[in-house]
Computed example of a mutant assay.
Amino acid sequence: MTASQRDIALSAGRLARTLQDWIGANFRLPAPDIPSLTSFSRLGSDEDQIPHPGEAAGTDVPAEEAASLVRARWGLGNAPIPNVVHLLEAHGVRIFSLSRDCLEVDAFSFWDRGIPFVLLSTEKTAERGRFDAAHELGHLVLHGEEQMPHGPQAEAEAHRFAAAFLMPRSDVLVHAPHGASTSWILQGKRRWKVAAMALAHRLHELGLTTEWQYRTHCVELGRLGYRKSEPRSGVVRETSQVLGKVFTALRSEGTRPADVARDLHLRPADLNDLILGLVVTAQDGDGQPHQGMSGRPKLSIVR
């Protein structure tokens, strides 16, 4: 990316830390619960051996296996994940959004004082946003707090983790036929809420399609417009449940986002960039929570 794009992304990370500090001082949020590769290398599922969140990795657990282990640790089984953002927030990941001026960055993640952060672009498709969130979880799990993942290898590992996390091997093998057609992929993608291209790649990765079939899928999906978008998707972009609850609670007390920005010595535009697309702003009328913010008790925020 260009230096200016990099600087915009890094600035967003610094502002996310500032906003998180303010929220953490006023609300009780879910504690971080991100397994590391170190935990996977110890005595199986012995909970006494689980390290602190963000502990540095030091093993060579394959990305596919790591995704399965995280699913097992979180009790997800092999079923599709309804909402990736809500799942990460339930396990203590702080989700914020990137500025629209940062189009070259899909997402990025980092640890700060034991707290995992993920920043997501709101300019991608809903399916791509889910995959990006899972990809960043892969970095948090595979590379730990003390490492600084970079380069093609780290990206490939996080990519394989995301594919396996969203489309578990056993579930895909049960529901996908050998030699699936492009039409089946366009139907099957709805089960896992992933991009058509991602599902085509996963089928090939699991040996369900040949090299020739995979190339055919890519050509046909590209011709139909699925290389850069998801026509007639129907999948709703995932939003932050935590930020929604926080700003709903503040609004009920008469505190506006502009008031929060002033307390943090931020421009309102900078604050809006962090919560863009993740908080429903059309709540100013009656202050009632949006339907999508009811959530599980695990995500309740206590003032």
Rank of each mutant, 00 (worst) to 15 (best):
G222Q: 02
F161M: 09
G151H: 08
V194K: 00
L224C: 08
E205R: 05
A176V: 15
H150W: 15
H217G: 01
H135A: 02
T182E: 01
A198G: 05
E155N: 07
Y214E: 14
S121G: 12
D132K: 09
A126G: 03
H150C: 14
R191G: 00
T210W: 12
W184H: 03
W212R: 12
R227H: 12
T209V: 14
L186I: 06
M167I: 09
G207H: 11
M167V: 06
G234W: 02
E220I: 14
M197L: 09
T182K: 10
E220L: 10
M197V: 15
P231C: 03
E136Q: 07
E127L: 15
T216H: 11
P152V: 15
E157F: 14
M148H: 07
V118M: 11
R237T: 03
L120P: 01
Q147W: 08
K228M: 11
Y226I: 00
A196P: 02
L203Q: 12
F165Y: 14
T122F: 03
R191E: 00
R130N: 10
V235F: 13
A198M: 04
C218W: 00
R223A: 13
E145I: 05
S240I: 05
K193T: 14
R191F: 01
H150M: 14
A133F: 07
H217F: 07
A126Q: 04
L203Y: 07
H217N: 08
S121C: 13
L221K: 06
R191S: 00
L208D: 11
T239R: 14
V118C: 11
E146P: 01
H217S: 13
G225Y: 09
D132H: 10
L203C: 10
V174Q: 10
L140K: 04
G188R: 04
M167E: 00
A164L: 06
P177N: 14
L199V: 13
G188K: 04
S183C: 02
S121Q: 09
Q147Y: 14
G207V: 15
L186S: 09
H143E: 06
E155S: 08
L224I: 10
V172I: 05
R130L: 05
Q153T: 13
Q213L: 06
R202L: 10
V194N: 00
L120Q: 03
L120V: 14
G138C: 00
R223T: 12
G129T: 08
L173F: 04
R202Y: 06
W184Y: 12
C218H: 00
G234Y: 05
L173H: 13
R215F: 05
L186R: 15
G207Y: 15
R190H: 13
V174N: 06
S229L: 02
P152N: 06
C218D: 02
R128E: 13
A134P: 01
E157T: 08
R237G: 15
R237Y: 02
Q213W: 05
H143I: 02
L120K: 05
P152I: 13
W184P: 08
A134F: 01
V219I: 09
E238F: 08
D171M: 03
S233M: 01
E145Q: 09
E211A: 06
Q187T: 15
V219K: 08
A195D: 04
